[in-house]
Design a protein around this nucleic acid. Structure first.
Lengths: 339, 339
DNA sequence: TTGAAAGCGGTACCAG
DNA sequence: CTGGTACCGCTTTCAA
């Protein structure tokens, strides 16, 4: 069953393709009411769908925004995607969602993929600092691009992200105010902008409070629950006298809690744990996890708005960086230590 | 900065576009080694990316599979998407992921969207029984289509799904064997194939065990945590003497547990709760939730394999239905009632 | 080994 | 108000 084309409709209606094109695109000024109606009926009857491909070839526009995220199974990202999606559809744009699967190669492949197809812009949540290969692709590409949840070293690139430094700084200070001084840090890969900022925030907070930095108190891991679980095991071996751990995301924190509990210890009595992101799980887990909230849905919306501005050319004066403020969500996973 | 086209490369290389096309597509038999090299260099230098759009227009093939799911924020679906993605990329296919946002209209819109673009097939996880509008779109479309996690009333349609009836039947029997007889049922919208099957499984298990059906023991809600929370409140009002509730998905079950706890009661001491899907959260929540596991990642992979078979024409003998077996995951949210 | 040219399904401009 | 037609960027015969 061949797909119906504009030519088929034109034949059946005894008009030219130009006319069909006119009515299909609602540029009906200059089309007789009767022909218009006849064509519309045919369109309906044969379920004619204009090929966006052919159309894209001539118009070079597509109303499709590509979105690359690191990992769909971290609940943080679907929420971001929703924000982007909601804002985009409001403006008639569709999203192509690509899950980079925590792999630079996959991300690079998707960048190519999106470049070859006619997306009109890309929102890119790179999970690590971009490699030279990727940097090159981006530089050579003329596609509008906004980074979300990161801020690469590219002059003039558009970014929306959280003030990660402040976020972690505040969190560590909160821990310190609660009497903690031996504070562990569970980091993700440090070659990620966000993670690196968080790490710096941790360091700075310790420093500002006159607490010595101890590398035995920091472990590095990947981002999933299982990774936090594993990392906690390692941290417990090196981190003597540790009374609290700050984790770089909620998933890791939850994994850490699992490990602690499995070892017969209690959170927060034996050790306090805090996370980052405020995903829904943090509310559900026992004890409820203290964490820092990112307005991720809104960040998504703003990123969408930003790229649409650029695409539609209203973006000459769009600011380069949009940075959001974090907020602490205090729950039950931190113990107050009396002095 | 205009995008580089095949013509540009051809000019620079002093050859025809046909030749460039040949080398770009590795149909190099019949291209001089030197010209070949020269062209490849140009391609590299100018970062030439052939327009998949133009190519798609002529070849009518695209290696893109559209995937429609109900809601990205239910962790069940990202896992399914991963399965599909992984299998698809193994065969060189890409996925366009569309989040229907629990809305038929959105789903319909995406169906159109995918139809207009040149995807080569669609994997569709409809969240409710398909409407006539959608049925029509599907019937009129010539695109390969496989349904996942549902089984619509369309002759000859390809489906991969769980034996939902058996799943819920087994779960209810498990409850009964543990001494429960006043068992509540928290259902999702009944005009969904999967949900309806689960409901029937519930009914059948009661019947087979000589337990009277009591409509005061069933509530209906939507699928999110909040919905389960709300539904539980209603159920508690009508469901007298209820000792257990079976929920149609884990999210609802978790919401139900929240409500129960908030009311000062305990799970499972005061009331047992079971879920469905075995999302990761069920392991994390306290008490750990007893639920039924769907091999959703594998189901995704099989769905991908199925549609690729159809697309590539090896699918003449593909079976219509692929049904997976559920398995109970017994954890801590069910109390054994001594007789 | 290479080139010319006919489309693919539309859009948009120019005529009539 | 409508039709003819030149592209858009690429693939694919058919000839040379």
């Amino acid at each position: 069953m061949m797909k119906i084309t504009i030519k088929d409709i034109a034949e059946k209606a005894n008009v030219s393709v130009a006319t069909v094109s006119r009515v299909v695109n609602n540029k009906s000024k200059g089309v007789g009411e009767d022909t218009r109606k006849r064509i519309l009926e045919l369109v309906e009857e044969y379920n004619y769908q204009p090929s966006a491909v052919a159309r894209g070839l001539v118009t070079k526009k597509s109303k499709i925004i590509g979105l690359i995220i690191p990992d769909l199974t971290n609940p943080f990202y679907p929420k971001m995607a929703k924000g982007i999606e909601d804002e985009a559809s409001k403006h008639g744009y569709n999203i192509i969602l690509c899950d980079g699967n925590n792999s630079m190669d996959k991300e690079a492949a998707y960048l190519d993929f999106l470049g070859e197809h006619y997306v009109c812009g890309i929102i890119y949540n790179n999970f690590k600092n971009i490699s030279d290969t990727i940097l090159n692709k981006i530089l050579k590409s003329s596609l509008p691009l906004v980074f979300i949840d990161s801020k690469p070293e590219i002059k003039g690139c558009k970014c929306v992200y959280l003030d990660n430094h402040k976020a972690m700084y505040d969190m560590i200070e909160y821990l310190i105010h609660n009497g903690h001084r031996r504070i562990g840090f569970m980091t993700g890969p440090l070659d990620s902008y966000s993670i690196n900022e968080r790490y710096k925030g941790y360091l700075k907070a310790l420093e500002d409070n006159g607490i010595a930095i101890d590398s035995d108190l920091v472990v590095q891991g990947e981002y999933a629950i299982k990774d936090g679980y594993d990392a906690m095991e390692r941290l417990l071996e090196t981190g003597t006298d540790m009374t609290a751990v700050a984790c770089c995301n909620d998933l890791m924190a939850i994994g850490a809690m699992e490990k602690i509990e499995e070892l017969g210890m209690c959170v927060p009595e034996d050790i306090s744990v805090v996370g980052f992101d405020n995903i829904e799980m943090t509310r559900l887990v026992r004890p409820k996890l203290t964490t820092v909230a990112q307005p991720i849905y809104d960040m998504g919306r703003e990123a969408a708005r930003m790229i649409i501005n650029i695409i539609e050319g209203h973006g000459k004066h769009t600011q380069d960086n949009l940075v959001f403020e974090p907020s602490l969500v205090i729950r039950d996973s931190v113990k107050k230590i009396e002095k």
